[in-house]
Design a protein around this nucleic acid. Structure first.
Lengths: 210, 210
DNA sequence: TCAAAACCATACAGTGCTGTATTGTATAGT
DNA sequence: ACTATACAATACAGCACTGTATGGTTTTGA
């Protein structure tokens, strides 16, 4: 070993990656989201994500200052995605309360506008981060208030409305937490019965299914 | 620095720890449980726990082969603690179905025999461990079947009984997941209303509170 | 009382992950 | 063609944590 000078120096390597394959900040955020959903915050490790993206950490530190920055980006992403749909339904003036409830419940049933896995991952995260916990609590509170309002519009006395809102919301969060993945057909079949129990028979009768 | 020979050798230190302060395997498991509850599996780090116990990792590796062994012990502990209470109530022959339901709901309300924080921590863990997820799913299933049976005993048709059991269970899991800590007084006040919604008015009327 | 068993402290080797520094390559705009 | 910009690769320093080796201390009990 003649004082081996042949050590590779930084940058001396692989040309590679023509335009199309290069990544943007969003690719990293998306991959981080995957990781978060799959294994919790602690699984959001930049070198593992880099491996997954088949790229090195050099790229990451170009797009982000540090790990904390992606995590912040994830929170932002979640807030902007999973808050709106409920509010929009609650605001509608063209339909009655039972229909609103139905529409909100369908957000869950259909899982299109609402990404429950992301939601669950945030809940997970909240267990170890005060900041996230606070944001989450605020949003849960908001969503429950929306349901409460709908129950009030249905004619339930305020106290009962509050509790029905809780039952509805807790129930759905629990469902996601358990991570039950039953087939869509079975779920749709059970759906009306859930509505009868959660919203009451009289109200459920006024909901029109498609 | 005269070739400083004064390097401490292993074992050359602190007498300390008279009987009472020495720890057993159980102390480690208990501390690990705390850590698990507070920050998830990834927070179960033996040197942090050691610091907390004001002892060194030497002790740990005396009691356990490695980290995996405490984790296994935690699973075992949880299984032996949080499974039984529900089954015992369900088996009772001296009370009717509504009373059984009440008793089971009270397990949750009073949080004595049932340690929900431990339960939630396991759910958390399950997200990153297939093995834990399986055990958890099995236990959730079991508990829901117990509720289903109670609803059947109440006279509900099997299909509705199944769904009511789900609503009850999901609801409670959701409640814990949200980590809501309202004062006991408010909870007790709302309790009857919850029962009316979850078990139905007719059944709730047959429950006697103390 | 003295030897074995139980328990604890320290050092050390090793690994996984973060963050920084530095240099290379591809593309757009001039 | 030249340069700025955007991106990527490599190396390196450093910390947090695991696991092992080893030698010490305390307790038990024959």
């Amino acid at each position: 070993m003649t004082t081996s000078r042949s050590r590779k120096r930084p940058g001396t390597a692989l040309p590679k990656k023509d335009r199309a394959e290069r990544l943007g900040r969003m690719d990293w955020i998306a991959a981080a989201r995957e990781a978060l959903i799959k294994g919790g915050v602690h699984a959001v490790k930049i070198d593992l994500i880099a491996n997954r993206l088949k790229i090195t950490r050099g790229s990451f530190y170009w797009h982000f200052k540090n790990r904390a920055e992606v995590l912040a980006a994830l929170i932002e992403l979640w807030e902007s995605q999973n808050t709106g749909p409920f509010e929009e339904i609650a605001k509608r003036a063209d339909i009655g309360a039972p229909e609103k409830y139905l529409a909100m419940a369908k957000l869950w049933l259909e899982e299109k506008a609402f990404d429950w896995q992301f939601d669950s991952a945030m809940r997970d995260w909240a267990r170890s981060s005060r900041a996230v916990a606070r944001k989450l609590a605020a949003i849960d509170d908001l969503r429950m208030k929306l349901f409460e309002q709908v129950f009030i519009e249905m004619g339930y006395p305020p106290y009962e409305a509050g509790i029905r809102a809780r039952v509805t919301y807790y129930h759905q969060v629990g469902y996601y937490t358990l991570g039950i993945r039953e087939d869509q057909r079975a779920r749709r079949e059970m759906f009306p019965m859930y509505l009868r129990i959660l919203a009451g028979d009289a109200q459920a009768d006024q909901m029109t299914f498609d």
